[in-house]
Computed example of a mutant assay.
Amino acid sequence: MISLLDFIRPALPGPNLTHSRWGTIWPYAGRNHGHKMRHKWPPVGSLRWPSTELHNVLAGRDNVRREFLNLLRFLGNELRIPLVGVGTREAYLAIRSDAQLENRFHPMTLPIWTNDIDTRSLLASFTASFPLRAPSHLTSAEMTDYLLTRCEGTIGELATLLTAAAVTAIEAGEEAITSQVLTQTAYSGPTERRRHFERHLA
């Protein structure tokens, strides 16, 4: 999955770039100029074009935000492929700020991971990807519950936890992610990190 900004940035003309806190975009200059730019973009090669971290739109100034939303609408019209926006609650609010775009995007929520066959399959994939010499048994019901509780059920946190555990396993000479290795792994979940930060602010 690629970022929309990363995808279009190589094709953007230097003098027309607009810089903001959330990236660099091409100011929407109308249909004729946009039609010319479309031919500079590489082929998508897919029936869907995912744009990640769409919530960053809200970090820009009002005029920059409008330009980006105009660009999204233009891409949907010209490329004639579905656009898939991925982000936090703020991404939904960004799309809602444009009535036409809101009609084109149908919001869906992604639930957190639970202790089911899909999660155990995901854990098995993680296990197979780590360069450990011994097998890591992470797919039991008890281990799955432990991992999900500690990472709070999100795939990004799970990846961070297991990667840190794999490093700990190698450094400890275990060569496998075990309960003991996980206990020794220096990892704090989102809630714990937030509380730690807020204590320092008080």
Rank of each mutant, 00 (worst) to 15 (best):
T127Q: 09
G156C: 10
G45H: 09
W113Y: 15
N63Q: 13
T168H: 03
T154M: 12
M108K: 07
I155S: 12
A59Y: 04
A124K: 06
D62G: 02
T144H: 04
P42L: 11
T139A: 13
A91M: 08
K36D: 04
R80Q: 15
P43W: 08
E102I: 00
T168C: 14
V44M: 10
T127F: 06
L101N: 02
H39L: 15
C151V: 11
M37D: 03
C151P: 06
T163F: 05
S129L: 11
S51V: 07
A94F: 03
I117Q: 10
P111M: 09
R65A: 11
I170F: 01
R150C: 14
T160P: 07
K36V: 10
A172S: 13
V64F: 02
P82M: 10
M108T: 06
E90Y: 10
R48I: 12
V44Q: 04
L83R: 01
E90Q: 15
N70V: 04
G85K: 08
V167C: 12
L138C: 10
I170H: 02
V57Q: 07
E157Y: 14
G156L: 11
S97P: 12
A124C: 13
P135S: 08
R73M: 05
T114Q: 10
T149N: 14
Q100P: 11
D116E: 12
W113P: 00
P42W: 13
E171A: 14
Y92D: 01
G45E: 04
M108A: 10
A164L: 15
M143D: 03
L158H: 00
V64T: 12
G85I: 03
D62H: 06
M108D: 05
L123P: 01
C151G: 10
K40E: 14
G45N: 07
S140A: 13
Y146N: 09
F68P: 02
L101Q: 03
R96T: 02
S121N: 08
R104F: 00
D118Y: 14
R66K: 11
E53T: 04
P50F: 08
E102G: 00
L138A: 09
R65S: 07
L148N: 02
L71A: 12
N63E: 15
G85E: 04
S97G: 09
R80M: 13
D116G: 13
R96C: 05
L54A: 13
R38M: 15
R89P: 05
K36M: 14
A166T: 09
W113S: 06
R96Y: 02
L93G: 04
G85R: 05
G173N: 09
L93F: 10
